[in-house]
Design a protein around this nucleic acid. Structure first.
Lengths: 152, 152
DNA sequence: ATTCCTGCAAATGTTTTGCAGACGG
DNA sequence: CCGTCTGCAAAACATTTGCAGGAAT
């Protein structure tokens, strides 16, 4: 059960990259493949380690460079939960709603969520403040169901 | 207009610290005073530099340690806008609404804002997801009025 | 062939830590 | 006095950059 119902992000990404004139490279392909297999966000370190274990050895610099390119092309989103480590996850073509994360202070678990009203409120605020918003981050913090005391 | 209507954050902070059993120390006092004089968030580096210029020489380690303590006590909030540098700003006693920030991609300006509906939506989401939220960050990105093309 | 892609190692920049001495209560 | 607080220097990390060799077109 690789990618669930998703239309193969790897293919989408390669298409975009080819269209932008990028060449095929082993390092980049390895990073893309690995990220397509993940449901949750990975850090550069995690990506480097997992690739190092595998057949293809990919250097740290390549990992960072590829991640940077992919974020630039909006093929990845950079998730910063405030621990000083950037994480990265796939972004599917327009239409698929992007999501945000809840971070458990105890176990560190990342719980993704999405909410249309939230998006709407953020757009309204941007309009009210007179700014041209082209992106936003929302991070919720606290205890996940497993770590919180049962009561509310 | 120094502190507008605010009840002297320094006093509030010192009270909290004393209550928690912390001792008075020159370094901590200097950091607190400096932050109380700021309207916007400062980075550790900026704090160190400004204090170094002044009469009181405060070491980098002390700055970081003090900031850490104050965040722990909820006397400061750590603002991370994603450039790899943490910034810090005063938090007033409960009741004062906390705010979030818009970050201009061009000039880096920070524009603070607050919105009750946003807070409400976030609480609703936390309830829906079954998590015990005790904090959250929201960062909007784009162009500020000065940097954006005139049209909306 | 030419130009991009990659890996290594070194550089950068931020934040943390070890330790000896100063200071507050 | 005792335990905290402080400053310095060094360490620990995440990320970026320089450069020479390898690969894709």
């Amino acid at each position: 059960m690789a990618s669930t119902e998703a239309p193969r992000w790897t293919a989408y990404a390669n298409e975009r990259l080819a269209g932008e004139g990028y060449r095929r490279g082993g390092g980049r392909a390895a990073v893309i493949d690995l990220l397509d297999a993940q449901e949750c966000a990975l850090s550069a370190q995690e990506i480097e380690d997992r690739l190092r274990e595998g057949e293809r050895r990919v250097g740290r610099a390549t990992v960072y460079r590829v991640l940077d390119e992919l974020v630039e092309l909006h093929l990845l989103s950079k998730v910063e939960i405030g621990d000083g480590v950037a994480r990265f996850e796939r972004v599917f073509p327009e239409g698929t709603h992007h999501h945000h994360h809840f971070v458990c202070r105890d176990c560190g678990r990342l719980i993704p969520f999405e909410d249309d009203e939230l998006e709407r409120v953020l757009r309204r605020i941007a309009r009210r403040e007179g700014v041209a918003m082209d992106g936003h981050d929302v991070t919720l913090r606290g205890r996940c169901p497993d770590c919180a005391p049962a009561a509310g």
